[in-house]
């Protein structure tokens, strides 16, 4: 992305002239790591991904090798952290939630992603279907590093990045919405960066 021309010494309102950024965000070229606990390091031989839920006709489970055999896509996306940094044009590879959820029969309306480390996040099903969310295991052409959520994390780039929860291990399909780790502690249930939904009540 080309940087806008600004005269030396003029720093005011810089955020507003950076293109493609949601309100209140600033651009970074780093990839900050936010940790609310120790970094889980699950061995691939012990990793699996499950879909569960009370309305499921049959729960689903993939081993790492089975997950790798699923149809894969490359995603280029801008990501926006609720702590105000944004990073543009990030490249990921993984499996669309459309692909995963097409393999189960259910009556649910919400999805709660659960993770190693005890984290979780909640999303309406209609916000993760239609090519809007993925389970990714590759970042910029390399295996996803543990500090960035490897071996696999959720990617939901149209929501604040906490909903792209790290170390994801499965999805619970639910009839009812249930706030996740951060949504139950003051953060907004929807987390739309373009509507600046950072905290409950925003």
């Amino acid at each position: 992305m080309s940087q806008p021309m600004v005269s030396r010494g003029f720093r005011g309102r810089q955020r507003s002239v950076e293109a493609n950024l949601p309100p209140g965000q600033y651009l970074t070229n780093d990839f900050p790591v936010l940790s609310a606990g120790p970094t889980p390091r699950t061995q691939l031989a012990k990793w699996d991904f499950t879909i569960v839920g009370t309305t499921l006709v049959q729960p689903k489970r993939w081993t790492w090798d089975e997950f790798q055999a699923l149809p894969r896509v490359t995603i280029q996306a801008d990501i926006h952290c609720v702590t105000r940094w944004s990073k543009l044009g990030t490249r990921w590879e993984g499996v669309a939630l459309d692909t995963l959820l097409a393999r189960v029969q259910h009556q649910a309306r919400f999805v709660i992603a659960y993770c190693d480390g005890g984290y979780s996040t909640n999303l309406p099903l209609n916000e993760v279907l239609g090519g809007k969310a993925w389970v990714v295991d590759s970042y910029e052409g390399a295996p996803l590093a543990p500090e960035h959520g490897g071996p696999a994390r959720l990617l939901v780039p149209h929501r604040y990045f906490w909903k792209s929860t790290k170390w994801v291990r499965g999805l619970e399909l639910s009839v009812d919405d249930r706030p996740g780790f951060w949504e139950s502690l003051g953060y907004h249930n929807d987390g739309d960066p373009w509507r600046e939904q950072r905290y409950q009540g925003d």
């Binding site: 936010l34 940790s35 609310a36 606990g37 702590t83 005890g118 906490w162 951060w182």
Partner: peptide
Amino acid sequence: YASPMGTVLRCPACEQP
């Protein structure tokens, strides 16, 4: 764990929040 998103105090024995 003092994260910009929030602070989590964990058990030193089992790491439970």
